[in-house]
Simulated assay, not measured.
Amino acid sequence: MNIDEINFDEKGLVPAIVQDARSKAVLTLAYMNKESLKMTIEKGETVFYSRSREELWHKGATSGNIQKVESLHYDCDQDSVLVQVTPAGPACHKGDYSCFSNSLINKKPSPKEEPYAIIDKLRDILAERKATLPEGSYTSQLFQEGVDRIAKKIGEEAGEVIIAAKNNDKDELSMESADLLFHLLLLLTDRDVSLEQVLSVLEQRHQ
């Protein structure tokens, strides 16, 4: 990226859309000036310009909720940037995973309209749980216990899938497969591996 190609506005700012690289959820809309954009590239973590305080701020410098930059793109008009990140905590100052937690319209597709929508929903939830670690959450507990515990759960669920398949129990096989898929998505989230990376491997093998 050549910073000189960015069209900053009359105040020297450009809007920065911040997106979770794993779940693809939009986390926040902030602003950068030339200096903060340069620092973001150099640090590999988001640095914004506060319009209210009129100063630079390194996201997570005090809270620990840093955002590790995975990619940085600018749009066709060169007047906005998209920053894909791996967040280490909530994006919102209110403690929410995303600043966009309030809804005006929220049409939920039916399983027939979008049969794989639940996968995206689970990815959002798992990314949020990893970032915020709410108390009393089963997924938060697994994230805190670490990869060994998560991997053990996958082994357990895989065994249950095998037993259900050998017993030719379709209902049980469906339920155990759901458990296995959930824990696999959890492991991918824990290891910062996106589902797109997995699907890309399948696509390459198919070709």
Score class of each variant (00 low, 15 high):
L188G: 03
I6D: 04
P87H: 07
D96F: 13
D4P: 01
I125L: 13
D4K: 14
K152A: 14
S110L: 15
E176I: 01
D20H: 09
L185H: 09
Q207W: 10
C92N: 03
L142W: 02
N33A: 01
L187N: 01
K34P: 04
D20T: 06
L29V: 11
S200A: 14
D169W: 02
F143I: 05
M39A: 07
K108A: 14
H58C: 06
D124K: 14
V83G: 02
H58L: 03
H73M: 10
V14R: 01
S50Y: 06
K68Y: 14
K24C: 15
G155T: 09
K11S: 12
V26T: 14
E113L: 10
V161M: 04
R51G: 02
G89K: 03
V147I: 05
T189D: 11
S140I: 10
E172Q: 12
Y31A: 02
L142H: 05
D190N: 13
L185A: 10
L82S: 06
E5K: 11
L142A: 05
K166D: 13
I3A: 05
N106T: 09
G64R: 01
E70Y: 08
Y74D: 07
A25P: 08
I118E: 11
L72V: 02
I105T: 08
S80F: 12
K153R: 06
F8M: 03
T139K: 12
K34R: 14
G95A: 03
G44F: 04
L37I: 00
P111R: 02
P109G: 09
K108M: 09
Q84K: 13
E114N: 10
N102H: 07
A151S: 14
A127L: 11
S137G: 03
T62L: 03
K153A: 05
L37N: 02
N33Y: 00
D179G: 09
